[in-house]
Design a protein around this nucleic acid. Structure first.
Ligand SMILES: [Mn+2]
Ligand SMILES: [Mn+2]
Ligand SMILES: [Zn+2]
Ligand SMILES: [Zn+2]
Lengths: 146, 146
DNA sequence: TACTATATAGTAATCATTCTTATTTGTCAA
DNA sequence: TTGACAAATAAGAATGATTACTATATAGTA
């Protein structure tokens, strides 16, 4: 039985909180709910704006801390960038990215071929590989048109 | 005839400056010289400290602006990071990275196999791919020991 | 050499991120 | 159900990287 993505997320959240003795607060639940819905790779500020629709009194600090906490717990992760604002990755499934160099949007795609690429000896000598990710950079269809 | 890497760099620098009508100043030359020597992926501050050995009066601002200028001109590029300080990439040759999640060092390696991986249709639909890069993340040999 | 657009140094402003502190709240044992 | 208390929050200040400003200096050119 494959869990729904949303159940997946909420479960992971509760489980990780329990594991680490962390409290389940309305703020954390709200951030979790927003991440669950997110189809993009939002900045902390973007998440803050979205969560405020539900919890108008939540502070930016709490959202930010919560995002870092979730990253720490492995509920989400960080997307590689170029020294700009942090962008968060709510998509837990192994996947790869197409990045538009103009509008900076990041598109997800999955590829068994990419997942299975062998690690060259030269790289293996550097250390133990935990994640493999392919980054494709270019100009997205929308930006190409303009 | 294959150019030496250093000639490569200096030539590219002069050529790009000429192309864009930019002046060749001692500051720019010094930054260029440091980048040429760099074996790592230095931050702006690291470059600043190194250049000051040669030009004690150079300002951080000038170094920073010069690094951004060089990036713009394609003499160097930026390394993908996680919302920390910008790190610059003086290695122009097509290559890939092993990143240590503990010490944050970034190791270069080359791989024809990686260079030639095909772009999946799903990714092609997003836009035109310009660069392909594989990012391997893990724990480097040194950090594994401790 | 003299001219002029460009570049620089020094410094201030901005913006993301992190820290501090007083107050509030979730959890749990009684 | 209640009270104690560790943990979490809001608000705002501090930090640190990045960017903008401006008076002065200089590379390139005739
Ligand atoms: Mn993604
Ligand atoms: Mn590199
Ligand atoms: Zn785009
Ligand atoms: Zn390491």
């Amino acid at each position: 039985m494959r869990l729904e993505k949303s159940q997946d997320f909420t479960q992971l959240f509760s489980q990780k909180c329990a594991e680490h003795g962390l409290k389940i607060t309305p703020q954390r639940s709200a951030v979790c709910a927003e991440l669950m819905k997110a189809k993009d790779h939002p900045t902390a500020d973007a998440v803050y704006k979205r969560v405020r629709e539900k919890l108008p009194n939540i502070s930016f600090d709490t959202v930010y801390r919560t995002l870092l906490l979730f990253t720490e717990l492995g509920i989400i992760s960080l997307v590689e960038g170029y020294g700009e604002q942090k962008r968060f990755e709510p998509n837990l499934h192994q996947h790869h990215h197409f990045r538009c160099v103009k509008c900076r949007k990041i598109f997800d795609f999955e590829s068994d071929t990419y997942d299975q690429i062998a690690v060259p000896k030269e790289a293996r000598n550097y250390g133990t590989v935990i994640h493999k990710r392919v980054v494709l950079e270019g100009v997205c269809a929308r930006c190409r048109r303009t």
